[in-house]
Every structure is written in C-alpha cells, then in structure tokens.
Simulated scan of single mutants.
Amino acid sequence: MTAVCREGTMRRAGEERMLRYTLKRMLIGVLSLIVLATVTFFLVRIMPGSPFQQGGVSSQVVEAVEEEYGLNEPIFTQYLNYMGGLLKGDFGISYQDPSTEVAEVIKRAWPVTASVGIAALAVSVLLGTGLGILRAVSEKRAVREIISGAGMLAAGIPTFAAAILLLLLFSVRLKWLPASGLLSPAHYILPVTALALYPAAVISRLTSNALSAEMGKAYYLFARAKGLGKWRAVFTHALKNAYLPVLNYVGPASASLLTGSFVIESIFTIPGLGREFVGSITNRDYTLILGLTVFMGAVVIAVNLATDLLCAWLSPETGRAYKKADGRQRK
C-alpha cells in the first residue's frame, strides 16, 4: 500500500513538473513573440521610402495618405496603437490593398504553404528514417556506402539549386511534370522533393548514427541474445531511444517547412506565405510584413514547444533533468 501511494505521489509530482515547464515555455513563447513584433515594427519603420510612394505619386498625396493611416504620428504612438490591435487579434489592413485585411491574406496563403510543408515533412521523415535504419542495420557495405553518398549529395546541394535542377530536368527537358502552381497532385512533386531533400539527408544521418550507437548497448544485445530477430529488436527496443535526436531536429525543420520557403514558392509560383512575404517587402507593405512575421513566429514557437514536450515525455533523462533544475530553483 505504501509503495502504491509513493508511486502515485511521484507520478503527480512528475505531472506538476511538466505542467510548470509547459507554462514556463508558453510564457517564454509569448514574450518572444512580443519581442519579435517589436523589433520587426521598428525595423520596418526605418525602411527608406513609403508604402504609398509608387507610380509617380506626388509628395502631397503621399503625405495625405500617410496622415489618413496615422503614419504621421510619433513612432511610439504608432507602436502602441499597433500592439493594442495585435493583442485583440487585429492584424490591420494591407496598405497596398486597403480592401483586404492582413488576416485574410494569411487565411488564403497559409493552407497552401502548409499543404506543401506537411507533404515535404512527411516525405523527409519517412524517407530519412527508412534510409537511416537501412544504413544502420544492413550488413552489405555497398548499401551503406550508397545511402551515405546519396545523403552527402542531397545535403550538399542548396535547396534553390535543387529546385532549379529538378525544374529544368523534369519540367523543361522531359516535360513529365508541371512547372508552376498547385492545381493537381502532380504539381506538388517538384516543390515537395526540393524541400524534402536536405532534411531527409539530415534525418537519415541522425537516425543511422543514433541507431548504430543503441545497437551496441547492453539492452539491445540482451534482446538479441534472447533470440529476438534483428529487425524486431530494432523496432521494439532501439528505435525509440535512437529517435530522440531526430525529434530534436524535426521540430525546427518542420517549423521552417510549415512557414514556407520563399525561394521554392517563388521558383514554382506557389501562392503561399513565402511569396506574400517577398511581395510585402518589395511593396513596403508595413502591416502585411508585420502580420506575416508575427504569424510565422507563432507557428515556429508552437511547433518547437510541441517538440520539446514530446521529447520530455519520451526521454526519462529529460524528465530527471527538469526535476533537478526545479530543485535548484527552489533552493
């Protein structure tokens, strides 16, 4: 009975530590988002020119339009007004298209970027994990060398160069795949492949190295000595521990993929967040730049938080580290 009570107490203490850690990370995320919005606001304001100074518009007209939008007010007043609206969920309107709210642009472009990012993430995780496991488990040297060489090649080619090469080969020369847009599943193949090459190579290397190390440990060797097959021992025992370094990489990588690749979306003419962001900078659309930056920052923070919590749940060592850190703080 005493052992059961002690186990329940330890479990509740662990849940409390995880709750405190989660709340702490959420608070840090909110503060980081406020800092990001603040820095971006002032950087945007010191950009030369005006969002309305285009097409030979006279300076008098520019001043009148800026006064209408409150851009003639002191910069700190503008900052407080913007942050007040942001805290209410109001991203403002686009200066280049006053009839369109920034939230509408995000709502329109985000699903497009997310669809490409999720597909690239799935391909990179599945391909990288599979090749990493095969490289670690295979007894054939030729297989290991081919996977290693292909990974080095994929990791060494910049994403934009891979996109251009894929476009020239499969779209321009062979004419097998469409070159732009996202009108059908076939349109996803080239941009998803270009985005997935580098993370797949990194995941393959991380999985292979970590799994090779786990396969040399006592618990794996003991499982094999008991008669468990190699593949079953890998998937039952070793892969869970070996995958923690991969999860630590997948978090930031997935955040990057989900917020869009500016170069890929520009090359393949994909109407996503990346292309909208490039266009907003070109047009000096202050509110659109700020809105896209804050939204993409929120996605990055949320994905990284989810990854950290998943790693803490899977790794007992991480949980013990939180317990020690919590004990030091109390002292």
Results as ranks from 00 to 15, higher is better:
K88G: 12
R284T: 00
L87H: 09
I301T: 12
P199N: 04
G216V: 08
G70H: 03
L71Q: 02
V137F: 03
T259L: 07
G8M: 14
L314V: 05
L27R: 13
S208F: 01
S115M: 09
E7T: 06
V299N: 00
K24G: 14
Q60C: 00
M83F: 13
T129K: 04
A200M: 10
P316Q: 02
G55Q: 12
G229A: 06
A312V: 13
Y198C: 01
Y243L: 04
S115Q: 15
Q96L: 06
G274T: 05
G151L: 09
L258A: 12
V112M: 06
A233F: 06
P271I: 05
V192A: 05
N241Y: 00
L19V: 08
G128E: 14
R224V: 12
N304L: 13
Y79M: 08
A200G: 04
T129G: 14
R108W: 00
L127E: 06
E214R: 13
H237F: 05
V300F: 15
P98Y: 10
I270G: 09
Y322I: 15
L121I: 07
L126V: 15
A325C: 00
T282R: 11
G117T: 09
A213N: 13
Q60L: 10
I157Q: 04
T100Q: 15
F42V: 13
P158R: 03
N283W: 07
A213W: 01
A306K: 04
R45S: 10
N304G: 04
I270L: 11
R284G: 00
L310W: 03
L177Y: 10
T259S: 14
T159C: 03
G216S: 07
L310F: 02
M1T: 07
